[in-house]
Structures are given as structure tokens and as C-alpha cells.
Amino acid sequence: MGDSSASYIHMVHHLIEECLIFNMSKEECMEALSKHANIKPVITSTVWNELQKENKEFFEAYTKGRDQRANELEQRQTQLINASIKENQKN
């Protein structure tokens, strides 16, 4: 059972890395792996937490980058909405 457990965890680790490439949050990754790979969210969460412990600086930068991109997207959306409102007020 040890070898198969280790290979299963390695596979989950690899799939989490794929989720990171797609800029997913932990929750998004848990949902995606549950839906598409039939991996229980508790397994994904546990492996994610271990990776986070082992790679603290990476995950801090990753989270900061995700937050910055989300803020930038929100600002752009607000600008587009405001521009649209102004355009509609002219007409």
C-alpha cells in the first residue's frame, strides 16, 4: 500500500501544480480535482497544505500575485462600467 499511496500523493501533487499554472486558488483547485479527477477535496487540501509548508515563499508570492491580478481586474471592470455609463448618458 505504501508505494501506491506515495504514487497517488505524487499524482495529486502534480495536478495541484497544473492548477497553479492556471492561477487557481486552493478552493478552485479542490473543486476542479474533485470534479475532473475524482479526488476528494480533503486529499487535495492536505497535499496543498504540505506543499505550502515546504514552499512558503512561493505560496506567499503566488497569493500576492493572485490578489494583485484580481484587484487590477476589478479596477478595469469598474473603469469599463463607468465609461459605459458615461457613454449612455451622452445618448
Rank of each mutant, 00 (worst) to 15 (best):
T63I: 11
S45G: 07
L51T: 00
N49P: 04
I85G: 03
Q77L: 15
E28I: 11
Q68P: 00
I16S: 01
T63Q: 08
K64R: 10
N88Y: 13
V42K: 09
E57I: 12
I43V: 07
E18P: 00
I81T: 09
E60H: 10
L80G: 10
M24V: 02
E17P: 01
Q89V: 11
I21L: 10
C29K: 05
K35D: 09
E18K: 02
C19Y: 06
E60C: 05
N23D: 05
E31M: 07
I81R: 11
A83T: 04
I85Y: 13
E74R: 11
I39D: 00
P41H: 01
E18R: 05
R66V: 11
E57L: 11
I43N: 03
S45H: 05
S84W: 14
L15Q: 03
C19K: 09
K53D: 07
H13L: 05
L20F: 07
S84A: 13
T63A: 13
E17S: 08
I81K: 14
E28D: 07
V42P: 00
T78M: 13
S34K: 10
K56S: 06
E74P: 00
A70K: 15
Q79T: 05
L15V: 00
E57G: 05
N55Y: 05
H14T: 13
V47G: 03
R69S: 10
I39V: 09
K40G: 01
E87R: 12
F58Q: 05
E50G: 02
Q77D: 06
F59L: 06
F22T: 01
V12Q: 02
E54V: 04
Q52G: 01
L20R: 04
C29G: 13
I85N: 07
E57D: 13
A61M: 12
V12F: 03
H13S: 04
L20M: 13
E87P: 01
L15D: 00
R66I: 08
Q75R: 12
F59D: 08
S45Y: 07
L15M: 08
E74L: 09
T46F: 09
S45Q: 06
K90P: 02
S25C: 07
F59I: 04
E87W: 15
Q68I: 14
V42N: 10
Q75D: 09
M11H: 13
K53H: 05
H36C: 08
L33M: 05
Q75N: 08
H36R: 11
L73H: 09
